Amino acid sequence: MDTDTAHIRFDTKIAILLRDDLESWQRLNVSAFLISGIATANPELIGEPYTDADDTGYLAMFRQPVLVFAGSKETLRTAHSRALSRNLPISIFTSDLFSTGNDRDNRAAVRKIGRDDLDLVGMALHAGRNVVDKVLKGARMHP
């Protein structure tokens, strides 16, 4: 088998779970914020920089796909609980963050609410494939 074209199967999965009632701009915004948390916590997930045929350089990106899922508010709450019970590092985005404009205010908005009362609109995680599948059980691939 030609190793340059062989299918690569990753032992881990990078996943984002979004609440299914978000507007399009919110889904994109939340995804961008959430995935930045995964990237900063897991620098080994970042591949090599890109270069085009004209030798123009571009930034490096994840070495593996990022899967995006959708689910109800309850699906998100359940996934959040499952991730925390497994001590998985996750990034979260709450509805309050749509009304803040900077990192300091974002952190303050999350800090003032207990974990069981967070109005989650998204979360992201990176873990073993089976672990991510168990945490996100009940969610569906984002349309």
Rank of each mutant, 00 (worst) to 15 (best):
M1T: 08
M1G: 15
D2H: 14
D2Y: 11
T3N: 10
T3Q: 15
T5V: 07
T5I: 07
I8T: 14
I8P: 07
F10N: 10
T12L: 09
I14N: 08
I16M: 06
L17C: 01
L18Y: 01
R19E: 05
D20A: 08
D21Y: 03
S24D: 13
W25R: 06
W25F: 09
R27H: 01
N29Q: 11
V30Y: 09
S31L: 04
A32C: 11
A32T: 11
F33N: 14
L34P: 09
L34N: 12
L34Y: 10
I35P: 02
I35Y: 07
I35L: 12
S36K: 14
G37Q: 02
I38Q: 09
A39E: 05
T40S: 14
T40H: 15
A41F: 01
P43W: 05
P43K: 11
E44H: 12
L45K: 05
I46L: 08
P49R: 04
P49N: 12
Y50W: 12
T51V: 14
T51I: 14
D52R: 06
A53R: 15
D55M: 11
T56P: 03
Y58C: 00
L59Y: 13
A60N: 01
A60P: 02
M61A: 15
F62V: 00
F62I: 03
Q64C: 10
Q64S: 07
P65H: 11
P65I: 00
P65K: 06
V66I: 15
L67W: 12
L67M: 14
F69N: 04
G71N: 04
S72M: 05
E74G: 10
E74H: 11
T75G: 12
L76M: 04
T78H: 12
A79M: 03
A79Q: 05
R82N: 11
L84W: 10
L84Y: 05
N87P: 04
N87K: 15
L88M: 10
I90D: 06
I90P: 04
I90M: 12
S91C: 03
S91Y: 09
I92K: 08
I92L: 10
F93T: 02
F93Q: 01
T94P: 03
S95R: 15
S99M: 08
N102Y: 00
R104S: 12
D105H: 11
N106G: 13
A109W: 03
K112V: 04
K112I: 06
I113L: 05
I113K: 15
G114L: 13
G114A: 15
G114T: 12
D117W: 04
L118K: 05
D119V: 00
G122E: 07
A124Q: 07
L125Y: 10
L125I: 11
L125W: 09
L125G: 06
L125V: 04
L125M: 12
H126L: 01
A127T: 03
G128P: 01
G128S: 05
R129E: 11
N130P: 00
V132I: 08
L136Y: 07
L136G: 05
K137T: 00
R140S: 07
R140W: 01
P143D: 12
